[in-house]
Design a protein around this nucleic acid. Structure first.
Lengths: 249, 249
DNA sequence: CTGAGTAATTGATTTAACTCAAGGTGGGGT
DNA sequence: ACCCCACCTTGAGTTAAATCAATTACTCAG
């Protein structure tokens, strides 16, 4: 059974069809400007993208797209957060990634052939996304090939980051996977401690790390009682990341 | 302990320093031409890349580069096969990818900052690789931004493929991970059966799938006795992939 | 504030996978 | 041909994690 009740079970149709107001918000525009895929764009070209795009509101647990759906848009998160997941035929729900405000996702669709979404995407809470037609960005790259430099850098980084995610998943025991996941959440890795916020509810972090929610809970309780992690709801305080790494392996 | 004896334990220094003969082989050149990153290059530009590159012979289990080493080159496999892996501080050896003849690897280094290899790379048998200076390819993209299109397509595909690898690893049980891995090796997925060759020795496939060699062996023995897979050394014959998928989940 | 529903925790039990250990097997070198 | 050395397989015992089952804690809507 699914680990959590998904949008799939609640609201039957994805909502990409909805047409909303154009994107004219100043704050959101600033955020878009600072994303690597858009930072280099001229004012005019950015305007073109925005004209072609639509702003979309997603409710709690609302489905944005389905696995295998034709992919003609990619997305930028103006506010809120989402997750990417897959559903087995048996209905097992496996979380693959969490998406935060300021992130782009499904942007690989710009070059996918055929363009079909590789997973489901749903909002974890009320969120605003910018729906960007793949074609619009392609047009821009066609006209100004210099823009490809930034895109290349972005894609290379994304590939590295996926590789790193994969690396975590080849760690064989649940505790060590969780520890590595936590270290990655820290802004400076093992360099210095700090407070991190889980980007997903605990049961979905568990799913992301290929373990059961009960296992997640027990491991975290362990780390807590060993004084390695201080837990407050979805906020974790890690004072000494190096100690965490030392007990793993 | 390491699952298998690695180059690390045998030969202490990576061999990137070696300077070999330039790349002038016709067969290898054809293969390079057909790689997405090089297919679009003009004869002159390809020649430039080849002039800057060196051909390198690697012996069985020879180390090509180390995790965290400064990365000024990327690679194209002319013949043979390699694997990418990481080593924990406790010496646990985790295989992350297998590289076959005709593949490019570490090519994300063209855009990495700072450019450091994310893992180890070693030859699994005697192999020939083309050592391409990152700078050479960067120069080309600088001069002809149109080349970036092909590179973008390649990087997007790579990101998708890593995402898919990650997806396999979120499958919680060993048997189902193995089944999915096998299906992916089939040229047409579940569409039709066929013979596949494991791209890695069994103990390394096990490592790649985050399980012990013994577990791998037992699962394969199970599948064999159920008539789902016919095993001949590292060659597996899968007559009905759909049946395999059906028993997973 | 209160109750309903979801998420998180905790306990007891079962099971899948790991570990340790002992044989096989097949290919490459002498 | 033979032996040697990896690699692989198989077995027995142990352990980590899954499963099943309750209880507790939040969150949100009314």
């Amino acid at each position: 059974m699914a680990l959590t009740q998904t949008a799939e079970t609640r609201c039957s149709k994805p909502i990409l069809v909805a047409v909303n107001k154009p994107f004219d918000d100043e704050g959101g525009l600033q955020a878009l400007r600072s994303h690597p895929l858009f930072a280099a764009l001229s004012g005019q070209d950015l305007q073109y993208i925005l004209q072609q795009s639509r702003r979309l509101h997603l409710g709690h647990h609302q489905l944005l797209y389905r696995q295998d759906m034709p992919a003609h848009q990619f997305f930028f998160v103006i506010s809120g957060c989402l997750r990417l997941y897959r559903l087995d035929s048996s209905g097992i729900d496996r979380t693959l990634d969490s998406i935060a405000s300021g992130d782009c996702f499904a942007e690989v669709m710009i070059y996918a052939d055929p363009p079909r979404y590789a997973c489901y995407a749903e909002a974890l809470k009320a969120s605003e996304v910018l729906v960007i037609p793949v074609k619009a960005y392609q047009d821009l790259l066609e006209i100004n090939p210099r823009y490809a430099q930034a895109a290349l850098r972005h894609y290379a980084k994304r590939a590295v980051s996926r590789f790193h995610d994969l690396e975590i998943m080849t760690v064989q025991n649940a505790r060590d996977r969780l520890i590595r996941y936590l270290i990655d959440l820290l802004p400076n890795g093992t360099e210095e401690g700090g407070e991190v916020e889980l980007p997903l509810p605990k049961c979905l972090v568990a799913s992301r790390l290929a373990m059961q929610p009960e296992t997640f809970s027990r491991i975290l309780a362990d780390l807590k009682s060993s004084g390695l992690v201080r837990v407050n709801r979805s906020r974790l305080f890690i004072s000494d990341p190096q100690r965490l790494v030392d007990i793993s392996q």
